[in-house]
């Protein structure tokens, strides 16, 4: 399977119910999280499996493609 391009997640804090399901399903080895118990929003995700977007019971998570600068800053 071709590698998917990295994405940056956005959490709609008004919709989020702090249920933790997004972290529960996240395959990242080290905690890819915010202090508010959601998926990380400040750094690109290079797995881009989108399981966190799917599991969210209230569709509080959306995403966009990471910019070149954001990807460069990861390494």
């Amino acid at each position: 399977m071709p590698k998917r391009p990295p994405v940056v997640f956005y959490v709609n804090w008004n919709a989020c119910i702090k249920c933790g399901a997004c972290i529960g399903v996240c395959p990242h080895e080290a905690g890819f999280t915010t202090p508010f118990d959601t998926i990380a929003v400040d750094t690109p995700c290079d797995i881009a499996c989108m399981a966190c977007e799917k599991i969210c019971p209230v569709t509080a998570i959306t995403s966009r493609l990471a910019t070149e600068a954001e990807i460069a800053a990861m390494s």
Partner: peptide, 26 residues
Amino acid sequence: DGLQSQVGKWGGLRTHIKLSELASCL
């Protein structure tokens, strides 16, 4: 420490759950 167990990850245990086996509940 729950579904997203960090302790399990420290120990190298295969804690990751598939989307097809995690019910999204409201």
